[in-house]
Design a protein around this nucleic acid. Structure first.
Lengths: 187, 187
DNA sequence: ATTACTGTGTGAGGTATGTCACACTTTAAG
DNA sequence: CTTAAAGTGTGACATACCTCACACAGTAAT
């Protein structure tokens, strides 16, 4: 059976067996239990994670202590505090497990090494970065132009599986409304 | 005098004279007047622009016809409908000039060509893409966690020049509030 | 100079959303 | 099994923000 991570990379760049083994040798795997943290606010993050199995949330808090969600990550998604990872600054967000999770991760140093040793991976990450940027841009568009109800429906349409795995409170924190308002959107 | 575009690239990657000339040969320049469009919604965008002089807005409209602003671009900033440019899809946004403007642009084909011919530029764009992603991420963080007043103050702090060149109506459309509300924030 | 257009501030009133409170159910922990 | 904790829905009320209206200043076009 083909490794799900290989399948993920090959959606963008075809690989030989040797190339995949070489890539994989730069990663480690790790298991984490529900409620455990992968990244804590204020840390210097030097790993980027890929979800083999499980579900993560990237969250942050406003001055009144209210939680907001930047991103969920389910199977085949990447997660890290991107700003901290790229700029070597303190993380503004925390990442934790919503379920018991199995992850691959690559350190900053290994990512740099792999980027320079293997041009295919430089191209892979460049593509990923482009797509990530487009997704974020569309989220901003949606935050500005759509009502809460519309944002709720768009999310439901795009990621129906999320609603079976994640509490409404967290969905609300992602959409930018209170859980009470989210609850009343259906009526 | 050093070309401002060279200076811009050299903030990330040092260049020889020949390298810069080679890069520049892939670009064209163009002048546009205030109110003219660079990109219109629905078009397939195949150019990426760099502002030598002037000011652009990237805007889009909700169902009620209200204008929202995704991005401003002043001197030394890049602008295009990134999704359309990367994915070869129809643009969701329009880009137009807020002042008479002077621009450099590169076509999609030339960008691909330059990326493959010159590894330094592949790295330059990869870096730019990373930074762009971080900026967008921070905008989402701000939209979720900060009040309108806080967003206003953060923008004023980060881009004071913008307020001397752009109407409050457009600032409001960028921040995601009505111009009336923006006007009342100061009191 | 005249006219139109755009930008800006401010009042009045409506609406969407937030906050607090409580009830009840479901899930997790000892 | 028992108890605590988290998730969910709903009512009552407060509030931030939107919309519409109007006034007036500044700018551009004829």
């Amino acid at each position: 059976m083909i490794h799900p991570f290989r399948q993920h990379i090959e959606e963008i760049i075809p690989l030989t067996d040797d190339e995949f083994d070489f890539i994989l040798s730069h990663f480690e795997s790790i298991k984490k239990r529900k409620h455990q943290y992968i990244v804590q606010e204020g840390e210097f993050v030097n790993k980027e994670y890929w979800v083999i199995k499980g579900c993560l949330k990237t969250c942050f808090y406003d001055d009144s202590g209210k939680e907001h969600i930047l991103q969920f990550a389910m199977e085949n998604w990447w997660s890290t505090d991107y700003e901290s990872f790229v700029n070597r600054t303190e993380s503004k967000t925390s990442i934790s497990c919503l379920e018991d999770s199995e992850l691959l991760y690559i350190t900053y140093e290994n990512r740099e090494k792999l980027t320079s040793e293997m041009h295919k991976m430089e191209r892979f990450w460049a593509k990923k970065s482009k797509y990530g940027r487009i997704a974020l841009q569309n989220r901003i568009l949606s935050l500005l132009k759509n009502s809460s109800k519309e944002r709720y429906e768009l999310l439901l349409e795009q990621y129906p599986k999320l609603f079976q795995r994640v509490s409404k409170k967290l969905i609300a924190a992602y959409l930018g409304v209170s859980r009470e308002t989210l609850s009343r959107l259906n009526s």
